[in-house]
């Protein structure tokens, strides 16, 4: 069992659009040290950070990542291709992105989009999480552990220790983590998958994943 506290895991959120500030705010509330970065000068997002994410620190992406243990990717997937994989080497990377062919264009994706992310980031541990609940719901539906109306959120990855760390993060920000054994299995979390966009309890979530497996078998 891990005894790590949130303070042991410094988080860098890359992306200050719809999704990034919501994840950053939830992580600050859960006790994590949080830095947030957009594509440019941190001054450009200083006001956003001060008002929407009090407690987080706006930084240049490279600086935020260098000091972080966990890096959350909350940028359009087509912009991910501009991120230098070397920057993320050795980091635990949360892929909160989704593949939208209409806006991302055709990307070289076979299997799960997170597998493409992981192939590009071969020096990092990649975990798929926080992508399947809409950004405007992510905060409203968060509940403390044990609440009767608490919902589930999926955590998928190939490295069990990395999955465990992110499951703890998901738990602390307000969701029952449902662990999926591989990035490939994380396909159920993608657009078109059985839990995408749905805000389900843990039994409903597990049922939806099981039904999906049966229908594919």
């Amino acid at each position: 069992m891990t005894t790590a506290t949130p303070a042991d895991h410094r988080i860098a959120v890359l992306g200050a659009g719809h999704v990034g500030p919501v994840i950053a705010r939830l992580a600050v509330k859960a006790g994590y040290p949080v830095a947030i970065a957009a594509s440019g000068d941190p001054d450009d997002i200083a006001l956003i950070t001060e008002l929407l994410i009090p407690g987080a620190r706006p930084r240049w992406a490279a600086d935020a990542v260098a000091d972080a243990d966990i890096v959350v990717l909350a940028i359009p997937l087509n912009r991910f291709l501009d991120v230098d994989p070397g920057l993320l080497r050795g980091k635990l990377v949360v892929d909160a992105m989704n593949y939208w062919p209409a806006s991302d264009g055709v990307l070289p994706i076979r299997g799960a989009s997170s597998e493409m992310v992981a192939r590009r980031l071969e020096g990092s541990d990649v975990v798929k999480a926080l992508n399947h609940i809409g950004y405007h719901e992510l905060e409203d539906r968060a509940r403390p552990s044990g609440a009767s109306d608490r919902r589930a959120a999926g955590v998928a990855g190939d490295d069990p220790a990395a999955v465990e760390t992110i499951a703890a993060l998901v738990d602390r920000i307000g969701y029952d983590p449902v662990r999926l054994a591989s990035l490939r299995a994380g396909r159920v979390l993608q657009p078109g998958g059985p839990v995408f966009g749905a805000v389900l309890t843990r039994p409903e979530f597990e049922q939806a994943v099981a039904d999906n497996e049966r229908s594919l078998a």
Partner: peptide, 9 residues
């Protein structure tokens, strides 16, 4: 604006 704070700025 639909929810992106950078659009507000």
């Amino acid at each position: 604006v639909g929810g992106n704070p950078q659009s507000v700025i």
